[in-house]
Design a protein around this nucleic acid. Sequence first.
DNA 1: GTCTATACTTAGATAGAC
DNA 2: GTCTATCTAAGTATAGAC
Lengths: 206, 206
Amino acid sequence: MTQRNASENQVKIMDVAAEEFMRAGFDATSIDDIARNIGQTKGFIYYHFRSKVEIFLAVYERGMEMVRDDVAPWAGGTGTGLERLRRMAKAHLVHLMENLAYHDVIHQGIEQRLRLRMTESQRATLIGLNALRDEYEALFRGVIREGMADGSVRELPAAVAARTLLGGLNAVDIWYRNDSGQATKPVDDLASVVADVLVGGFQDKG
Amino acid sequence: MTQRNASENQVKIMDVAAEEFMRAGFDATSIDDIARNIGQTKGFIYYHFRSKVEIFLAVYERGMEMVRDDVAPWAGGTGTGLERLRRMAKAHLVHLMENLAYHDVIHQGIEQRLRLRMTESQRATLIGLNALRDEYEALFRGVIREGMADGSVRELPAAVAARTLLGGLNAVDIWYRNDSGQATKPVDDLASVVADVLVGGFQDKG
DNA sequence: GTCTATACTTAGATAGAC
DNA sequence: GTCTATCTAAGTATAGAC
């Protein structure tokens, strides 16, 4: 399913499924759990999706497309590579904090463990999603390289650096939800602090 | 089980279980899978552990104790707070790369999803492990604060900064294993690059 | 389109043989 | 101490009613 085609009911199922996958993990979430949380039954779910894995993949795709659409514009625009990198990092963090469940599913998807239990066609879908993910990572690699070219970013291996940055950004989904004390801190302030720590290491101090 | 008391067979089970948990995740790993990989049967496992959750918790504990024992010495010693923080980050990374499976289980444990399906006594064990984890995090917070005091680390909220750093360090376990091209790069070099990116953002540039 | 009833599979855990 | 046989529960998926 491309997200453009998703019906209203499918989106409802994805939203609830994302929350449940975050709460208990993919395996421990039953189709009945998802149905119950919508106030429907199994049959409703199976009418809209072929299997639990399909729901997971749809959530993963939807999440990736949403964050990419939010962050991609910041790769362009004015300023040095470093400045744009910081804007991208912050936009990613704000999106993550406001769509925790989707990001948690992306995180689970990246871990690739489900891959082992997929059918051939589901695996093909996952490969497509991995491409989407690579494309997103490439957005960061590109801006890092532009920063090295304009002298704002110090010399470093762009691929490793991009993964380190994205890993640090995504890891926020682990503790952000677990710490209600932190959650009261305004999203924007918290995103700034984390973005500064993570992007600061890219700066050329020469 | 405290790790001091672990028998040879228990360690063998933990080592194999950690690999399987990494490969397929906790839920999708059966006791039979673990037994088969040791060349034994279910009965062998259940003689040494009461349940699958107990194995998971034991692996989590063992992993946390191992990394703490490796990293803690670097919190002390000579140099500024920033220099010591970098040594800790690098030691953490090297340990992670050389004990991927244990770190992957720690990562799963931190996500707290299993908590929902635990007995009271297992939950109590998990709370103890969370304390161990907090203690480890405090090691980083402490050195960050020392760095702010000696002027090597810029002013920032230590708690958020420590979590951001540790999140970035731990996220390496996601891609390190998935990229055989990177894995050929010497562990030490890769650890240096990642540590520099992550700790660089702490530096006081004033 | 949605619900109910059910078939089927998998795997955690235990009892008892050896 | 380890193995084999078995009980049991849970949950995916489907068929067919409405």
